[in-house]
Write a protein that binds this DNA or RNA. Structure first.
Lengths: 145, 145
DNA sequence: GATCGTTATAACATGTACTGTTACATCCGG
DNA sequence: CCGGATGTAACAGTACATGTTATAACGATC
């Protein structure tokens, strides 16, 4: 069933939310406030924000009245960038245990599939690169009742 | 880490192996023989073959001297077909618990992302459709030392 | 410099999925 | 009827995602 994780979804949610808040005048927000919109535990949000900080999209201030703020224009952050920041690992897995190298298929199957999977991941990257966080927020706001 | 499963890999391995064996004159093979090349348990192979049978790519004979055989030309089976047969579920997951619908972002984020993810999965499907099992086998054989 | 609210992170619990394995019922050619 | 294989259920082990609690570190404000 693939059981895909929700990291890209959560990260996109966070960044869109932060930008909307920024437009409303709130430059600095806490993980607890974000958690209120995502509907999860603040620690989950901080874990994700930590990845986004390492990628240079947000920064954290500590101490009293601390919180997080966007440091890059959401127009310049593509979902490809976000994906790279919060998720790694291949779309499709290889054999758990190496195949039988004495068999022609067992010997050649992994290089052959690696080529296919590489092209696949490139296609995904290109698609992700076409949408920015700002695009997502535009679409989010267009959904309002 | 995404920890992608290996179902597409195993299915492609099985089909390529069956076609190679067919070319060598063996039309019917057992799950145990296939397991020897994939290097896993025959039950794992049978589970996968069951999916491939439901999709109409292979058939099973039972009783003594039983086994599996290809029923469709590998040239006509694309990795998209194989993927559909053995794997379902989205590439990227949505929120585990629904977001806060009282928040504009919480309300609109899922429809917005569904659109993005839909395009993404379509791109993957198109890429997978460009490679057939026969192509994979060609590439596998080209790897030989 | 002490306080307080927040980040940062470790540790643990829980749920779920994938893989591998054993066991056994079912089938059918010989 | 036998024997060898499929078809499936049940279970163990591993891995990972998510959620939760606890605690250390930090720094603005008083």
């Amino acid at each position: 069933m693939m059981s895909a994780n929700s990291r890209l979804t959560i990260a996109a949610h966070i960044l869109a939310w932060m930008e909307l808040d920024r437009r409303g005048g709130r430059e600095v927000v806490t993980s607890e406030q974000i958690a209120g919109s995502v509907n999860t535990n603040p620690v989950v949000i901080r874990r994700c924000l930590g990845d986004l900080r390492k990628a240079g999209f947000v920064e954290a201030r500590r101490g009293a009245g601390a919180g997080w703020s966007l440091v890059r224009d959401p127009e310049s952050i593509s979902l490809f960038d976000v994906h790279q920041a919060v998720e790694q690992g291949p779309l499709f897995g290889m054999h758990h245990t190496p195949p039988n190298e004495g068999c022609p298929v067992g010997y050649g199957i992994q290089p052959a599939l690696r080529r296919v999977y590489g092209g696949l991941e490139e296609a995904v990257r290109q698609q992700l690169a076409q949408t920015s966080v700002a695009d997502v927020l535009r679409d989010v706001l267009a959904q309002q009742r």
